[in-house]
Amino acid sequence: MAPLLSVIDMTHYFGGLCAVNNFNLAIEPGQIKGLIGPNGAGKTTVFNLITGVYTPTEGTIELMGKNIKGLETHRIASMGLGRTFQNLALWRHMNVLDHIRMAHYSQLSYGLFGAFFGTPKCREQEDQVIDNSYKLLQLFDVKQFATQNIGNLPYGAQRRVEMARAMATKPKVLFLDEPTAGMTPDELIRMIEIIRQVHRDFGVAIFLIEHRMKFVMELCESIQTLVFGEVIAEGPPEEIQNNPEVIEAYLGKEDVH
């Protein structure tokens, strides 16, 4: 059987600069995979390429056997590829509940006419969306903020809202771009629990970028290390941790005097 998400030989150039070279990825249902690498290695570019923000110069990307290369971002997202952003991408004038409601956009079928006149079909679907949104808010422990403006929330809660929002799109694969950036150690432990919970309850496959080794080691079954757009090592966490090339990329070469 074909994997849930498969990326084969994905290469992308920004002008003459090769940002990502021959990137390969296969995610099976229910897997958690990690992507690590020093700053500027092209990790977020990999995310943006797969989610359709950029179209890769070469290579194929398939989600559940269907080609998604070149499709618009919102199409890819509604096919089952959810994501969060490295520097929170929230809607600053919206309240928390509306954030989650918004993410149900592609699941609504009442159309503009229904929205204009508030038809029974529209109301029924909107009520369903609100119910579902409250469930998600509860699950991510941000229900108490439901009617608050997103800007009033503490950082950790904002991160959780972003996760809840991504889950509202009903993804099959969830992309997390540095989910613990800027978090305190307490929040970090909580985040690990939440990701485990999402993984368990929704059965979603997860692909994450992360800098904190502890976090990656805890969660991921397999890790890829990206350096200057190329994967230099791939394997289970213990192997990657002791891989001399990875250590070199992160810490530099050991000079022998």
Partner: peptide, 29 residues
């Protein structure tokens, strides 16, 4: 009023506040 309080109408706000995020949340911008 109906339009702007529905999810369809909220999409306008989403596009205004952060277009890439709206796109990734399945909104046809």
């Amino acid at each position: 009023h109906n339009f702007t309080t529905s999810v369809m109408g909220k999409a306008l706000n989403a596009v205004r506040d952060n277009e890439p995020a709206a796109n990734s949340m399945t909104v046809n911008t």
